[in-house]
């Protein structure tokens, strides 16, 4: 049934520019509300985290993926399935650390930063920091404690946008109180 409904102006999709500009309105508001870029970064990360925690459920329900066997598989799923599904692009996975616990996502384009130019005086702002929060939140819900940060950003004059993910540890299943 869902297949057919998809044809008439896919109801599961939203205009990308509406999304971009809505995000822009949010960041502009945060910059007004907070004193410095670090605090804005932190707030964006927090909001992203909240989104990620909920997004993973949607992902597990729709993507029909099994459990990942190792971090490399996780990286592939993030890049090829999750990014594709939610932002409509596929970043390149690269720069693996020797131990296999750290990798980078390279983004050629970034829907969050379309139309955006960083005004001077905001060198410390990680405009797309929301994305780090989303990844962190979503991975935490599948028992992975991961550090996520921006290494390069085209907004800051780099040639490519690079997000670095570092696997810290496996989280143990915490059984909610009174539900064992």
């Amino acid at each position: 049934m869902s297949r057919q409904a998809n044809r008439a102006g896919d109801p599961r999709k939203v205009n990308g520019e509406l999304f971009t500009l809505t995000y822009g309105a949010l960041v502009a508001q945060l910059i007004k509300d907070y004193e410095n870029d670090e605090q804005v970064n932190k707030q964006l990360d927090k909001m992203g985290y909240n989104m990620g925690v909920r997004l993973i459920e949607d992902f597990l329900a729709r993507a029909n993926m099994g459990r990942c066997n190792d971090f490399r598989e996780t990286a592939d799923v993030i890049a090829k399935v999750a990014f594709k599904m939610y932002l409509g692009l596929t970043p390149v996975v690269s720069n693996w650390s020797a131990a296999g616990d750290e990798f980078s996502l390279l983004l050629e384009s970034n829907p969050l930063t379309e139309f955006v130019e960083l005004p001077s005086g905001h060198n410390n702002l990680n405009y797309s920091n929301l994305m780090c929060g989303v990844l962190r939140g979503a991975l935490e819900m599948v028992q992975m404690d991961v550090d996520v940060r921006f290494v390069q950003d085209t907004l800051k004059g780099d040639n490519i946008t690079e997000i670095r993910l570092k696997f810290n540890k496996r989280l143990e299943d915490a059984v909610p109180v009174g539900e064992d």
């Binding site: 939203v14 999304f19 809505t22 989104m51 939610y86």
Partner: peptide, 15 residues
Amino acid sequence: PEVNIATFALLFSEI
């Protein structure tokens, strides 16, 4: 370019 409605909905909810 289009994005998933869930992405937008969660962003809006955070806002």
